[in-house]
Design a binder for these strands. Structure first.
Lengths: 128, 128
DNA sequence: CGGGATCCTAACCGATACTG
DNA sequence: CAGTATCGGTTAGGATCCCG
Protein backbone atom coordinates (compact mmCIF):
# COMPACT_ATOMS: atom_id res chain seq x y z
CA UNK A 1 0.00 0.00 0.00
CA UNK A 2 1.52 3.23 -1.22
CA UNK A 3 1.54 6.26 0.96
CA UNK A 4 -0.13 9.15 -0.75
CA UNK A 5 2.43 11.63 -1.89
CA UNK A 6 1.10 14.88 -3.19
CA UNK A 7 2.78 17.05 -5.72
CA UNK A 8 4.06 20.49 -4.88
CA UNK A 9 3.68 21.71 -8.43
CA UNK A 10 3.62 25.39 -7.85
CA UNK A 11 5.51 24.83 -4.75
CA UNK A 12 8.58 24.25 -2.87
CA UNK A 13 11.03 21.47 -3.66
CA UNK A 14 11.93 21.40 0.01
CA UNK A 15 8.38 20.41 0.82
CA UNK A 16 8.58 17.53 -1.60
CA UNK A 17 11.70 16.29 0.09
CA UNK A 18 10.10 16.64 3.47
CA UNK A 19 7.25 14.41 2.43
CA UNK A 20 9.72 11.57 2.13
CA UNK A 21 12.18 12.19 4.94
CA UNK A 22 10.20 14.01 7.57
CA UNK A 23 9.43 11.72 10.42
CA UNK A 24 11.08 11.53 13.75
CA UNK A 25 13.66 8.90 12.84
CA UNK A 26 13.70 8.60 9.06
CA UNK A 27 16.78 10.64 8.33
CA UNK A 28 18.63 8.83 11.10
CA UNK A 29 17.64 5.45 9.69
CA UNK A 30 18.83 6.56 6.27
CA UNK A 31 22.08 7.71 7.79
CA UNK A 32 22.79 4.30 9.27
CA UNK A 33 21.74 2.42 6.16
CA UNK A 34 24.00 4.60 4.07
CA UNK A 35 26.90 3.82 6.36
CA UNK A 36 26.22 0.10 6.75
CA UNK A 37 24.52 -0.93 3.55
CA UNK A 38 22.52 -3.64 5.29
CA UNK A 39 21.09 -3.59 8.78
CA UNK A 40 18.96 -5.98 10.73
CA UNK A 41 16.08 -4.66 12.77
CA UNK A 42 17.77 -5.12 16.12
CA UNK A 43 20.92 -3.62 14.78
CA UNK A 44 19.12 -0.43 13.89
CA UNK A 45 17.45 -0.46 17.27
CA UNK A 46 20.82 -0.57 18.99
CA UNK A 47 22.19 2.20 16.83
CA UNK A 48 19.21 4.43 17.47
CA UNK A 49 18.73 3.86 21.14
CA UNK A 50 16.09 6.48 21.77
CA UNK A 51 13.78 4.99 19.18
CA UNK A 52 11.39 2.35 20.49
CA UNK A 53 10.89 -0.82 18.50
CA UNK A 54 7.37 0.24 17.74
CA UNK A 55 8.50 3.57 16.31
CA UNK A 56 11.33 1.97 14.42
CA UNK A 57 8.92 -0.45 12.79
CA UNK A 58 6.48 2.33 11.92
CA UNK A 59 9.14 4.48 10.34
CA UNK A 60 10.62 1.56 8.43
CA UNK A 61 7.18 0.64 7.16
CA UNK A 62 6.64 4.10 5.78
CA UNK A 63 10.07 4.18 4.21
CA UNK A 64 9.30 0.84 2.61
CA UNK A 65 5.97 2.11 1.28
CA UNK A 66 7.76 5.07 -0.20
CA UNK A 67 10.25 2.76 -1.85
CA UNK A 68 13.14 4.22 0.09
CA UNK A 69 14.15 1.02 1.82
CA UNK A 70 13.88 -2.63 0.83
CA UNK A 71 12.87 -5.09 3.50
CA UNK A 72 14.20 -8.60 3.22
CA UNK A 73 12.49 -11.24 5.31
CA UNK A 74 14.10 -14.62 5.82
CA UNK A 75 11.64 -17.34 6.74
CA UNK A 76 13.57 -18.84 9.59
CA UNK A 77 13.09 -19.28 13.28
CA UNK A 78 13.81 -17.08 15.13
CA UNK A 79 12.82 -14.46 12.56
CA UNK A 80 15.45 -12.62 10.62
CA UNK A 81 14.90 -9.44 8.65
CA UNK A 82 17.21 -6.95 7.16
CA UNK A 83 16.90 -3.63 5.45
CA UNK A 84 18.78 -2.02 2.62
CA UNK A 85 18.34 1.22 0.74
CA UNK A 86 16.75 1.09 -2.67
CA UNK A 87 18.37 3.06 -5.47
CA UNK A 88 15.73 5.66 -4.84
CA UNK A 89 16.70 5.71 -1.20
CA UNK A 90 20.35 6.06 -2.09
CA UNK A 91 19.51 9.13 -4.13
CA UNK A 92 18.81 10.85 -0.82
CA UNK A 93 22.44 10.48 0.19
CA UNK A 94 23.39 14.11 -0.51
CA UNK A 95 20.64 15.31 1.79
CA UNK A 96 21.59 13.00 4.62
CA UNK A 97 25.28 13.71 4.17
CA UNK A 98 24.67 17.43 4.35
CA UNK A 99 22.83 16.87 7.61
CA UNK A 100 25.63 14.64 8.86
CA UNK A 101 28.27 17.17 8.02
CA UNK A 102 26.46 20.01 9.67
CA UNK A 103 25.74 18.00 12.81
CA UNK A 104 29.31 16.78 12.99
CA UNK A 105 30.72 20.24 12.66
CA UNK A 106 28.61 21.64 15.43
CA UNK A 107 29.02 18.69 17.75
CA UNK A 108 32.78 18.98 17.37
CA UNK A 109 32.94 22.73 17.57
CA UNK A 110 30.96 22.83 20.74
CA UNK A 111 32.08 19.69 22.47
CA UNK A 112 35.74 19.41 21.55
CA UNK A 113 37.17 22.75 20.64
CA UNK A 114 35.02 24.71 22.97
CA UNK A 115 35.64 27.88 21.04
CA UNK A 116 32.33 28.15 19.33
CA UNK A 117 30.91 31.60 19.59
CA UNK A 118 28.29 32.44 22.12
CA UNK A 119 25.50 32.35 19.64
CA UNK A 120 26.32 28.87 18.52
CA UNK A 121 26.60 27.70 22.08
CA UNK A 122 23.22 29.02 22.96
CA UNK A 123 21.77 27.56 19.83
CA UNK A 124 23.04 24.15 20.77
CA UNK A 125 21.98 24.52 24.36
CA UNK A 126 25.29 25.19 26.06
CA UNK A 127 26.27 27.98 28.33
CA UNK A 128 28.87 30.24 26.83
CA UNK B 1 13.08 31.19 26.90
CA UNK B 2 15.50 28.82 25.32
CA UNK B 3 14.29 25.61 23.79
CA UNK B 4 16.00 22.68 25.33
CA UNK B 5 18.50 21.26 22.90
CA UNK B 6 20.38 18.23 24.03
CA UNK B 7 23.85 17.31 22.89
CA UNK B 8 24.43 14.16 20.87
CA UNK B 9 28.05 13.71 21.88
CA UNK B 10 28.21 9.98 21.56
CA UNK B 11 25.50 10.07 19.04
CA UNK B 12 24.35 10.74 15.62
CA UNK B 13 25.18 14.03 13.91
CA UNK B 14 21.97 13.71 11.95
CA UNK B 15 20.04 13.84 15.18
CA UNK B 16 21.82 17.03 16.16
CA UNK B 17 20.78 18.60 12.89
CA UNK B 18 17.23 17.41 13.29
CA UNK B 19 16.96 19.13 16.63
CA UNK B 20 17.31 22.43 14.84
CA UNK B 21 15.49 21.92 11.57
CA UNK B 22 12.83 19.34 12.30
CA UNK B 23 9.46 20.96 12.50
CA UNK B 24 6.70 21.01 9.98
CA UNK B 25 7.78 24.19 8.20
CA UNK B 26 11.25 25.06 9.41
CA UNK B 27 13.22 23.83 6.44
CA UNK B 28 10.78 25.55 4.11
CA UNK B 29 11.13 28.81 5.99
CA UNK B 30 14.90 28.50 5.79
CA UNK B 31 14.63 27.83 2.09
CA UNK B 32 12.75 31.06 1.47
CA UNK B 33 14.98 33.11 3.72
CA UNK B 34 18.03 31.78 1.92
CA UNK B 35 16.52 32.80 -1.39
CA UNK B 36 15.23 36.18 -0.31
CA UNK B 37 17.55 37.32 2.43
CA UNK B 38 14.81 39.29 4.15
CA UNK B 39 11.14 38.42 4.37
CA UNK B 40 8.22 40.00 6.12
CA UNK B 41 5.75 37.83 7.97
CA UNK B 42 3.01 38.12 5.40
CA UNK B 43 5.46 37.53 2.64
CA UNK B 44 6.42 34.20 4.14
CA UNK B 45 2.79 33.37 4.61
CA UNK B 46 2.11 33.92 0.94
CA UNK B 47 5.08 31.85 -0.07
CA UNK B 48 4.07 28.98 2.20
CA UNK B 49 0.38 28.90 1.57
CA UNK B 50 -0.43 25.72 3.46
CA UNK B 51 1.05 27.10 6.64
CA UNK B 52 -1.38 28.99 8.85
CA UNK B 53 -0.31 32.23 10.45
CA UNK B 54 -0.41 30.50 13.79
CA UNK B 55 1.94 27.76 12.67
CA UNK B 56 4.20 30.19 10.89
CA UNK B 57 4.53 32.28 14.03
CA UNK B 58 5.22 29.21 16.15
CA UNK B 59 7.90 27.92 13.84
CA UNK B 60 9.50 31.33 13.52
CA UNK B 61 9.51 31.71 17.27
CA UNK B 62 11.37 28.45 17.70
CA UNK B 63 13.83 29.32 14.98
CA UNK B 64 14.44 32.62 16.70
CA UNK B 65 14.98 30.92 20.06
CA UNK B 66 17.48 28.62 18.41
CA UNK B 67 19.28 31.62 16.94
CA UNK B 68 18.59 30.53 13.38
CA UNK B 69 16.61 33.59 12.38
CA UNK B 70 16.71 37.19 13.50
CA UNK B 71 13.43 38.98 13.96
CA UNK B 72 13.34 42.70 13.34
CA UNK B 73 10.35 44.57 14.67
CA UNK B 74 9.62 48.10 13.52
CA UNK B 75 7.48 50.07 15.94
CA UNK B 76 5.06 51.49 13.45
CA UNK B 77 1.39 51.27 12.75
CA UNK B 78 0.36 49.02 11.14
CA UNK B 79 2.98 46.67 12.51
CA UNK B 80 5.96 45.74 10.41
CA UNK B 81 8.29 42.86 11.06
CA UNK B 82 10.87 41.12 9.02
CA UNK B 83 13.04 38.10 9.35
CA UNK B 84 16.58 37.35 8.26
CA UNK B 85 18.88 34.40 8.80
CA UNK B 86 21.63 34.71 11.37
CA UNK B 87 25.12 33.54 10.46
CA UNK B 88 24.30 30.39 12.34
CA UNK B 89 21.17 30.00 10.26
CA UNK B 90 23.11 30.57 7.07
CA UNK B 91 25.41 27.71 7.99
CA UNK B 92 22.45 25.43 7.35
CA UNK B 93 22.42 26.41 3.69
CA UNK B 94 24.09 23.19 2.43
CA UNK B 95 21.42 21.10 4.13
CA UNK B 96 18.56 23.11 2.72
CA UNK B 97 20.13 23.25 -0.71
CA UNK B 98 20.55 19.49 -0.79
CA UNK B 99 16.87 19.17 0.03
CA UNK B 100 16.01 21.70 -2.64
CA UNK B 101 18.01 19.92 -5.28
CA UNK B 102 16.57 16.52 -4.47
CA UNK B 103 13.01 17.88 -4.35
CA UNK B 104 13.46 19.59 -7.69
CA UNK B 105 14.38 16.35 -9.40
CA UNK B 106 11.67 14.55 -7.56
CA UNK B 107 9.01 17.02 -8.62
CA UNK B 108 10.06 16.91 -12.22
CA UNK B 109 10.21 13.19 -12.75
CA UNK B 110 8.44 11.26 -10.05
CA UNK B 111 5.50 13.00 -8.54
CA UNK B 112 3.81 13.19 -11.91
CA UNK B 113 3.65 9.42 -11.97
CA UNK B 114 2.48 9.22 -8.41
CA UNK B 115 5.16 6.85 -7.27
CA UNK B 116 8.83 6.18 -7.23
CA UNK B 117 10.62 3.19 -8.68
CA UNK B 118 14.00 2.19 -9.94
CA UNK B 119 13.28 3.47 -13.44
CA UNK B 120 12.51 6.86 -12.04
CA UNK B 121 15.84 6.81 -10.27
CA UNK B 122 17.68 6.16 -13.49
CA UNK B 123 15.62 8.90 -15.09
CA UNK B 124 16.89 11.16 -12.36
CA UNK B 125 20.39 10.40 -13.43
CA UNK B 126 21.25 8.32 -10.41
CA UNK B 127 23.21 5.13 -10.71
CA UNK B 128 21.20 1.99 -10.25
C1' DC C 1 14.16 -12.01 17.00
C1' DG C 2 11.05 -9.01 14.71
C1' DG C 3 7.56 -7.22 14.97
C1' DG C 4 1.86 -6.33 15.40
C1' DA C 5 -2.34 -5.04 18.46
C1' DT C 6 -4.14 -2.21 22.15
C1' DC C 7 -4.61 1.32 25.24
C1' DC C 8 -3.76 5.70 26.70
C1' DT C 9 -1.68 10.26 27.24
C1' DA C 10 0.74 14.33 25.53
C1' DA C 11 1.62 17.06 21.70
C1' DC C 12 0.36 18.94 17.73
C1' DC C 13 -2.22 21.68 14.90
C1' DG C 14 -6.43 23.83 12.54
C1' DA C 15 -10.25 27.08 13.17
C1' DT C 16 -11.83 31.02 15.09
C1' DA C 17 -11.72 35.22 17.50
C1' DC C 18 -9.27 39.11 19.08
C1' DT C 19 -5.82 43.11 19.31
C1' DG C 20 -2.21 47.03 19.03
C1' DC D 1 -0.19 43.85 9.38
C1' DA D 2 1.55 40.67 12.52
C1' DG D 3 0.67 38.33 15.44
C1' DT D 4 -1.52 35.94 20.39
C1' DA D 5 -5.35 33.28 22.96
C1' DT D 6 -8.40 29.77 23.38
C1' DC D 7 -10.79 25.59 22.24
C1' DG D 8 -11.13 21.08 20.54
C1' DG D 9 -10.21 17.30 17.32
C1' DT D 10 -6.41 14.57 15.58
C1' DT D 11 -2.27 12.46 15.77
C1' DA D 12 2.16 10.98 17.68
C1' DG D 13 4.19 8.04 20.36
C1' DG D 14 5.19 5.44 25.02
C1' DA D 15 3.98 1.18 27.69
C1' DT D 16 2.57 -3.20 27.71
C1' DC D 17 1.31 -7.65 25.99
C1' DC D 18 1.37 -10.92 22.54
C1' DC D 19 2.75 -14.22 18.86
C1' DG D 20 5.40 -17.16 15.15
Amino acid sequence: MQRHIYACQDGCPVQSTLQIISGKWKAVILYHLLKNDTCRFGELQRKIEDCSSRMLALQLNELEKDNVVKKNVYSVMPPKTDYTLTEFGKSLAPVVEAMEKWGDHYNQTIVKEGHANAEDCRALGYES
